[in-house]
Design a protein around this nucleic acid. Sequence first.
DNA 1: GCCGTCACG
DNA 2: GACGTACGTGACGGCG
Length: 952
Amino acid sequence: MTEPDVTGDPDQKHRIYLVDGSGYIFRAYFAMIRGRRPMSRSDGTPTGAVLGFSNMLFKLIQDTQADGRVSHLAVIFDTSRKTFRSEIYPEYKANRDAPPEDLIPQFPLVREATRAFNVPAIEKEGFEADDIIATYAAQARAKGMECVIVSSDKDLMQLVGGDVTMLDPMKNKEIGVAEVEEKFGVGPDRVIDVQSLAGDSVDNIPGVPGIGIKTAALLINEFGDLDSLLERAEEIPQKGRREKLIENADLARVSRDLVTLKTDVNLDIDVMDLTVEMPKPADLIAFLKENEFKQLTGRVMEFFGEGFRDEVAALPDDDPPEENGVPQVDEVHYTTILDMDALKSWIREAERVGHVAVDTETTSLNAMQASLVGVSLSIHPGSACYIPVGHVSKKAQGGFDFDGAAEGQADDMPRQLPKEDVIKALKPLLEDPGVLKIGQNIKYDQVILAQEGITVAPIDDTMLLSYCQDAGLHGHGMDELAQLHLGVTPISFKEVAGTGKSQITFAEVPIDKATEYAAEDADITLRLHNHLKRQLVKAKAVSLYETIERPLVPVIAQMEQEGVRVDAKLLSHLSSDFGARMEDLVKEIHNLAGEEFNVGSPKQLGEILFDKMGLSGAKKGKTGAYTTDVNVLEGLAADGVELAQKVLDWRQLSKLKSTYTDALQGQINPRTGRIHTSFALAAASTGRLASSEPNVQNIPVRTEEGRKLREAFVAEPGNKLISADYSQIELRLLAHIADIQSLKEAFEQGLDIHAKTASQVFNTPIEGMDPMMRRSAKAINFGIIYGISAFGLARQLGVSRTEAQGYIDQYFIQYPGIRDYMEKTKSFCHEHGYVQTLFGRKVHLPGINDKNGARRSFSERAAINAPIQGSAADIIKRAMIRLPDALNEEKLSARMLLQVHDELIFEVPADEVEKTVAVVKSVMEGAALPALELSVPLTVDAGIGDNWGEAH
DNA sequence: GCCGTCACG
DNA sequence: GACGTACGTGACGGCG
């Protein structure tokens, strides 16, 4: 970046454009409303204001090209509504309505537009755009530059004068001293005085009651300025005015503090760094296409002209050339950051460019028990840095490392920047709303950095970008994606940390090796982002990503950090109880078998049962071993084989003890005393979450013994747990998707759906029905969702295959629409290779046209199930995204802890239970709206208790 | 590291 | 006519 030539010659003066982004969005929005009908993308995202903004920005950029003197440009935004002005005067802007519903999603898009045009997007927490503009205007003035403020906001008019002018972007009209005088009746230097007197109903600035702009200007012109006026108020001839002024002098002074713009905001980016850059054609066009701005796309392409790629490649500071959206990187450059100046220049560059790939290195894969070891950043493909902060010396480095020993510091720690300094420097960048943070599974990094007091936002996630477009095709881990999309194999973790028993933590990895590994990860993440973000548009997965997966990340990160309290004493008590009963059972089993053997070995058990005891019903699995699963053992038990029943009992206890009561005790985080699961966002191809370490989604509930375990999941004293679950959501969605009138009516009337099915299929009245019939119907209903087969249903019900087939035939006679749905879904999948949920999530089924019949049938059943299971997953995710805000708005402090596919668990202060239940129910039941109006009602049942067992 | 088993929705 | 089956997950112990 070169400093502009700031010689004294006025014709040579450089010029800066400061665009009031926030002001513009509102004007563009209301202009659009007044004019045509509101416009939106095909996925429903409203875009009217974004288009207006993009058009304006494009025009501005064309102007800057034409006018060689424009050297600097930035768009400035407001952040939250809380600013220093609300501290001075709490009512400031307090009478403002919340922004219109269909404008809200456009705020982030407008920032994205700014980045796509390669223009710095500036904002700062606690300050309004106006203050930032005033500060930059003052700085530009001091550098001898001309300043054009692109806005028509009267609050900015106090800045006009000298080399500062304004430009009304809608009317394309310049606002100079004359226009300000026309509006306020005084020159720009007296605008503040007039505003202090006149007040402003829009911003809720009080002013002096009864005095408007006209009178204010009159008074100021007569007395000179506000202070003189207030001092000499006695001299005012008109009684009313005089008294009001004297009475409300303080209000006028407060008003002045409110309207006076700050010119000394401490900004992270220097005004001289706001240089005009050419937009990157690929980025810009991808953005415009994503938002379906067809006309503008055409004009922008024309603007770039033929061969624009060469131009781009020729730019000195630009990213490498691309092929199919994949940056072609010949050589890479990775550096270790060991001094603050180097770190700060990386941060400045990230601020300038508006994005940065971030990766954290830690001591553990489990985010809740990991501590930070280092951070890597990448801004341009092929280039990345690693900032070590938590490396320790490796003790057993071998006896030959004399150099290392000699170089060692007093405490033998590797040389690295102090962690506190690095965190302090990174925090503004990682929290800057104008800089996109790109990560691979960035939820992990969010959880890690939350420990350091950093809230990483806004974010993009390459893992989720991949998941949204390629679910079912392959995994979404970084190594796999790098191989697939970039054709590179990253250094494996094993290569730097070893494997097995001799594996070391990342903190012990020497810093040079750590840099190679960590910097590469950030670099690859950035390059993957380049590719996947662009591809997202073609895959028609933008809406899924933007409205579901991306906003879910911080919600899940928060849940993981909350964790859930467990009663360790109860777990340990259950463990010993189960253990004792298992010992007794083992003895009895050995007695019955006539010899000692390992009850936990299916192989040994099979041999005892079928070889030694010669029982019938022997089946062999694919490995040639006897099958000894529940079905087999239950069959034997029903025939009176006592040993089989004992083994079943033992297995249940063994499962409960090893997987739950023992394991959960070890999962309690010593820091929090709670269990923190990890929810995998990109594991299940249907869109469901998965839970691990521990898996909280398979805590027992179906048996008496198992349910005891749920009592160990407890609320903190003074709190309750709320469990809210969707009732029959998958069957409801089936009724909606397949459009089955009678099922829809049954749900509308709140009937017992399984009984209703039974009565229709078996042609018997619900009253006095044989419970077996309802049970069969329930199995059929589930079977339908799973892509029914006579074999599966027969096994589930324990009836013959022909009998099961008879049920299925009967079912389809009653519900021919469901058969149609199944056939249509299968043939769609055969043709396209994927199926879709109600919210556009694609689930790919590469086996759908396999020549292996078994694999093909498998895919066909999955194809029938995926839209149902996946739509339910989409709906609960939508609810989860909305809930934190919805609870906040009602000032409820409930915390969302767990998700179990159709159930959400909250921890709530006891006195807020009722209100919370109402909010949770209404958000969950309405979660499909407004994107989709279902033709069946969704209902949510909520339970309350001191523990999960009680609440469920 | 795979397999069988079994916990959940 | 044979294939080998209900859909989606994760954790455990046994076994090679």
